[in-house]
Design a protein around this nucleic acid. Structure first.
Length: 308
DNA sequence: TCGATTTGACCTTC
DNA sequence: GAAGGTCAAATCGA
């Protein structure tokens, strides 16, 4: 067993222990406090994130090893998939009651079920000249291509800092054939340039921002509902993508957010807004699984039991 | 003048 | 050979 594999097991054991603590805490609201529950949830999520990060790192190493031993490649791949499946089953069994539908859980499962990882966003809305809304990063277009079977060409963009900072981030943007307001944006590599999305161009106060998100989301909802289901089938395997979802939803405070309105919106899809505050993006669950129902379960149950 | 975009040619993969 | 991805010269605009 690799060192990293031992760490994954250790992290999972810690997550299990924390989950047990949270279960006890929620079952005995009188002996627990809101703060302690928040700390526990935060630590559990931290465990999940660490585990995912380690598994992704481990995955690359195992892949490398299997390439080095080409005569055993199929066997290695089977072993890798099998061990991942075991971890998934572990999660499924151990955390079923509380976290069975959590974002992390589902993302882990999807990561395991699908080898190729990429992230696709459906961006609803257009910029001033009918271009996709800004995601905050600096992109330089390097090509455009007509795509077989598509009415609209696909644009190829790479990070402006590709040559100055060696950033390999690349994205492909294609306008939807069905809905001209929608763009399919495919991110193929992550930014390594350490240039964070701009937050200065559209600085608004937090309440205004939240209000605007809700407004934009509602406006876009009708548009989305008219799109073909297949068009909304997105894969959200990327870890960064997961973090983005968590940043948007997981730490919403039921005491301050209009939680019920979000609940309605999240039934079928979930809107987010980039840090630049200029993009309306709908991250849609690719299956019938509700990535967010668990969030309601976690926050909702805690809300009911002891957080008020 | 310089950086960004356009677009035809070329390369790669299936 | 077809389709998608990238390159790079030409062009545009601030």
């Amino acid at each position: 067993m690799l060192m990293e594999e031992k760490l994954v097991v250790k992290e999972l054991e810690q997550g299990k222990e924390l989950t047990n603590q949270l279960t006890n805490s929620l079952n005995n609201p009188s002996s627990s406090s809101k703060d302690s529950n928040e700390v526990l949830i935060s630590e559990i999520i931290h465990c999940f994130e660490n585990t995912i990060a380690m598994m992704m790192s481990l995955d690359k190493k195992t892949l490398k090893r299997s390439h080095e031993r080409s005569d055993q490649s199929n066997k290695k791949r089977y072993e890798r998939d099998y061990s991942s499946l075991c971890v998934y089953e572990f999660f499924k069994f151990e955390f079923h009651d509380i976290l069975s539908n959590s974002v992390d859980f589902l993302i882990i499962r999807r990561m395991l079920e699908k080898n190729k990882m990429e992230k696709v966003k459906i961006c609803v809305g257009t910029g001033p000249e009918g271009t996709p809304l800004d995601d905050g990063y600096c992109w330089r277009k390097y090509g455009q291509k007509d795509i077989h079977g598509s009415k609209n060409p696909r644009g190829y963009y790479r990070c402006t800092h590709r040559f100055t900072r060696g950033c390999l981030a690349v994205k492909q943007v294609q306008k939807s054939d069905i809905n001209p307001l929608c763009y399919e944006v495919k991110y193929l590599e992550s930014h390594t340039c350490d240039i964070t999305p701009s937050t200065t161009k559209h600085s608004v106060s937090v309440p205004q921002e939240e209000e605007r998100k809700l407004h934009d989301a509602k406006q876009s909802e009708d548009t989305i509902k008219h799109m073909k289901h297949e068009e909304l089938m997105l894969s959200i395997e990327d870890l960064d993508y997961k973090k983005e979802i968590f940043r948007t939803f997981s730490f919403s405070n039921p005491e301050t957010d209009d939680f019920l309105e979000w609940k309605d919106l999240m039934e079928n899809f979930s809107p987010t807004t980039s840090e630049s505050g200029t993009t309306n993006e709908f991250h849609v669950s690719p299956t019938d699984d509700s990535c967010f129902s668990s969030l309601e379960n976690i926050l909702g149950s805690a809300h009911d039991l002891s957080w008020m």
